[in-house]
């Protein structure tokens, strides 16, 4: 039972489609002593902005049924530390493709960060995040309006020749309109979905659980939303999709690929079990056997 679990994503061959999602895998090297990072299909790095950021005040995390809310608020060491320190260090530890995840508060900031990521040999793919719900002005504002998403994509496209993915928000009326705007401006692919905007209240204290009041909801509970978004966008666009949202098992990964994803990011599952990604990879061949799948690449978007 030799199964082919490799996929080709925007011209890059991934040994498997499993990618830890940005913001759920530390700076990238925290787990290097726990399992071989080269087992991963690729690694999506922590969301990075032009300047270093502390992020939001704590508490930043709230438990929910089937997942969690986070309002980390893009804590990161800044793009110069990413390209000068974090990415080269990771490259010295593994050869798996690295995906820089770029956020910004202005179109220019996105552009400058993409230029710096483009110049960094350790980075293979640039993922532009126009969907962070936890920062004020900027973040998700660029991903909820087709014209703004198009403008960011145009600027990022000018900044890099590397495969360019735009990470989309589900907090929109029509995700296909945003997706098409990014495709029209030359994006090589799309990552979806980012978290759903949510809120919890501590009924004893009569206050929001999160210091930021609202946060991004993720985990198994959002999986059906992600499947729907990926399938809609797969029907509306021709560029490849990295599916993301609540994936916790090899079965979930296969469902996400059938919906239209070429590769799959695993997010919240890493927070519950830091060995979630290697566990999903290990489980794939047996699940493929049960389902009569020889080659994962064959099932992309079949539904």
């Amino acid at each position: 039972m030799v199964k082919d679990i490799s996929v080709t994503l925007a011209g890059i061959c991934l040994k498997n489609p499993v990618i830890p999602a940005s913001g759920t895998f530390g700076l990238g090297y925290e787990m290097a002593e726990v399992f071989a990072l080269d087992r991963l299909g690729a690694i999506a790095l922590k969301g990075t902005t032009l300047e270093p950021r502390f992020g939001n005040p704590t508490p930043r995390i709230a438990e929910c049924t089937g997942g969690l809310l986070n309002a980390v608020g893009l804590q990161n060491p800044g793009i110069d530390a990413l390209v000068g320190d974090v990415a080269p260090k990771l490259r010295s530890l593994c050869s798996t493709p690295l995906i820089a995840n770029i956020s910004g508060f202005s179109v220019d900031e996105f552009g400058i960060c993409c230029e710096k990521a483009d110049a960094c040999a350790a980075i293979d793919i640039v993922e532009v995040n126009v969907s962070c719900p936890n920062v004020h002005k900027g973040g998700m504002a660029f991903g909820t309006d087709p014209a703004a998403a198009a403008e960011v994509t145009r600027r990022a496209r000018k900044a890099t020749r590397k495969p360019l993915f735009i990470k989309l928000s589900p907090n929109v009326t029509d995700i296909t309109a945003i997706a098409r705007a990014c495709e029209d401006e030359g994006a090589d692919g799309l990552t979806l979905i980012n978290t759903l905007l949510g809120m919890r209240i501590d009924i004893r204290r009569r206050k929001p659980v999160l210091a930021n009041r609202t946060g991004g909801f993720s985990g198994p509970a959002v999986f059906p939303v992600a499947i729907r978004c990926v399938n809609q966008v797969a029907k509306a666009c021709r560029i490849p999709i990295i599916g993301c949202g609540g994936v916790s098992s090899a079965e979930d990964l296969i469902e996400m690929m059938m919906a239209g994803a070429t590769a799959v990011q695993v997010g919240s599952a890493n927070l519950r079990d830091p060995l979630a990604c290697p566990a999903i990879i290990d489980a794939l061949p047996a699940v493929m056997e049960q389902l009569g799948i020889e080659k994962l690449q064959d099932i992309i978007g079949i539904v």
Binding site: T24, T58, L68, Q75
Partner: peptide, 14 residues
């Protein structure tokens, strides 16, 4: 502090 993962992955307890 309120933690998400406890393993350094989520930046929840900074």
């Amino acid at each position: 502090e309120r933690m998400g993962c406890g393993t350094g992955l989520c930046f929840g307890c900074t």
